[in-house]
Design a protein around this nucleic acid. Structure first.
Length: 291
DNA sequence: AAGCTAATCAACCGCCCGGTA
DNA sequence: CTACCGGGCGGTTGATTAGCT
């Protein structure tokens, strides 16, 4: 039994949103708030699917959307979060204020993934490892990256052709124009040596300072996943029903869905995790009350 | 200058999940 | 327990744009 479609597609506008549609949607959400997306188009007088309205609002019209290029620090954070969370774009976006999952996903698929691919192929050329060592290689961020299908056919090909990224702007103030269409960010070239970040000054209000708390998260999550979960029964790692793994967190070899983690949390020995929790709680307290 | 190619990213699609009646 | 609804998510598509020849 299939689901009923979210809306009748007949007579609805598709494709790019017009300024008028944007205004109608923005005005409506400002007055009535988010939610009830299915009914929103009818009530607001938009010839759009409710899902489309939600997406437009979340990815483009929300007032807290951060426009402009992804900074070097944000990129680092994305890479590290992706290492932890895999393609959980919404979770990753949750740690990057003002960035949307769609934006991060696109950014990953274009810049970062490509860069990592290039780095990988570069090291492969340099080291030429044996097949055996290749097969036993630990899954990494590089191998977990999957480029868009269009690029699949030649995903192993190293693009030597220059791209159109000619603007070097690793850290610059983003334009804040009224018309978001006019301020549409254009691509920028990634630094050749991402490790050197000395040219990127840190500001106090720089959201990329989230890197700091990521240190805690990463330690905590890694300890949690790697130590406690490894002691659990294999049954814990089975997906419930025949659902796909769309809601799972990939962490090296294991996959854990949020519900499984909940189940596992119920089963683990909490005293064994006390020190980890204390560490996290201390840190949280420090954040809440620095004095 | 024109045509071609590749990159970008907003938008779409389909599936899944949680809540509820 | 089941069906349905609303919403969210990740993967994919395609129009637009920019760079190259």
């Amino acid at each position: 039994m299939g689901r009923s479609p979210c809306c009748s597609k007949e007579g609805l506008n598709r494709g790019a949103w017009t300024a008028t549609e944007d205004k109608i949607l923005t005005d409506y959400v400002k007055i009535h708030g988010e939610g009830q997306w299915r009914n929103l188009p009818k009530r607001a007088g938009l010839k759009r699917c409710g899902k489309s309205c939600r997406l437009r609002w979340l990815n483009y019209l929300r007032p807290d959307i951060k426009r402009g290029n992804i900074t070097h620090d944000e990129e680092e954070l994305i890479i590290r979060l992706h290492k932890l969370l895999g393609n959980r774009w919404s979770l990753i976006a949750g740690r990057l204020p003002g960035r949307t999952d769609n934006e991060i996903k696109n950014y990953w698929n274009t810049y970062i993934g490509k860069k990592l691919q290039n780095q990988q192929s570069h090291s492969l050329r340099n080291h030429k490892p044996s097949n055996q060592s290749q097969n036993k290689a630990k899954p990494s961020i590089e191998t977990s990256f999957r480029p868009p299908s269009k690029a699949n056919s030649n995903s192993c090909v190293i693009r030597t052709k220059a791209t159109r990224c000619t603007k070097v702007c690793s850290h610059r103030p983003e334009p804040q124009l009224e018309d978001s269409k006019l301020s549409k960010p254009r691509p920028f070239s990634l630094p050749e040596e991402p490790e050197s970040s000395e040219h990127v000054p840190k500001e106090d209000n720089d959201p990329s300072n989230f890197l700091i708390d990521l240190e805690v998260d990463e330690i905590f999550l890694s300890e949690f996943l790697n130590s406690e979960l490894s002691q659990l029964q294999p049954s814990h790692f089975q997906n419930k029903g025949d659902h796909s793994d769309s809601n799972t967190v990939r962490c090296e070899q294991g996959q854990y869905s949020s519900t499984h983690v909940t189940t596992m949390i119920q089963d683990v020995d909490f005293t064994a995790m006390a020190s980890l929790m204390e560490f996290e709680l201390d840190w949280l307290q420090d954040q809440a009350d620095p004095n």
